[in-house]
Design a protein around this nucleic acid. Sequence first.
DNA 1: TACCATTCGTTCGGTTAGCTAATGAATTGA
DNA 2: TCAATTCATTAGCTAACCGAACGAATGGTA
Lengths: 147, 147
Amino acid sequence: MSDADEPVAGGPDLAGRVRLMVVRLRRRVQSEHSRSALSGVQISALDSLSRFGPLTPRELAVCERIQPPTMTKLIAALEFDGLITRETHPRDRRQLILRTTPVGEQALAAAVRETEEWLGKRLSELSEEDRAAVMAAVDVFNKLAGG
Amino acid sequence: MSDADEPVAGGPDLAGRVRLMVVRLRRRVQSEHSRSALSGVQISALDSLSRFGPLTPRELAVCERIQPPTMTKLIAALEFDGLITRETHPRDRRQLILRTTPVGEQALAAAVRETEEWLGKRLSELSEEDRAAVMAAVDVFNKLAGG
DNA sequence: TACCATTCGTTCGGTTAGCTAATGAATTGA
DNA sequence: TCAATTCATTAGCTAACCGAACGAATGGTA
């Protein structure tokens, strides 16, 4: 087991390289993003809500790894735009039940399409090998982000 | 060539999944980051400056894909902490020459070590296969961010 | 040599996305 | 019944961006 002796996991400074990647990739994604549409954070929250069914603000905050006050603002914006609804919890009146609306689902789909337009284009310009690497890694990085 | 017929590059909604990944991974990295040290943005800029030699603010801004006003603030903070120096350009007095200081290099190295401590740990907890996927993808994502 | 367009870094003001601390309402448990 | 807890929220803060506008410096041209 010669590779068990390695002081760092996965080659020289993998962690540092991942860190730089995160900062730069997010800046690129941010800058390429159309101003008119949903923000990345909104898309992420809406996606989680759509995927994991009705949730309370707390649950969604945990899921998105943000703090409750941040979630409050996010919810207010999404509700203002009619993308989600806010009902009071039937058994616990402290809590709320958040649901995506049809409009919200449409907006989410539109955001996905818009992302596909520029990011998908850039991905399609990669070599077959590079694209395979991206595909293989995206879920690993999500695991890394969400574990 | 059955996979040549795919309407989107790299499976269903790869772009959307990458986008969500970016938002969530960056939030995770941000939240795990120790307050006292350099910020991710500072590390990124310092790394570029260290790697690509003395640069003008404009060159560094292009390299980091941020706008000049943002770079001005970034430079001011780094200079205030003694991590870089600012000399006037010998031939063009409008421009500046930015250099990392030994202190800056040390701080960069320390930041890398600190990142290694938590992110490296998490990376080492991945399966061999997952870690290989990360290694293969990190440069592809950097290419995606910087092209 | 005088002017004009361009480029550079900077200042100003605004936005977005996060945080902590504190608060009031509701629930739960002793 | 009452104390502890939990929930969402408010208030106030910071980091990290942006665009518009500006003065200083440069370079080309008449």
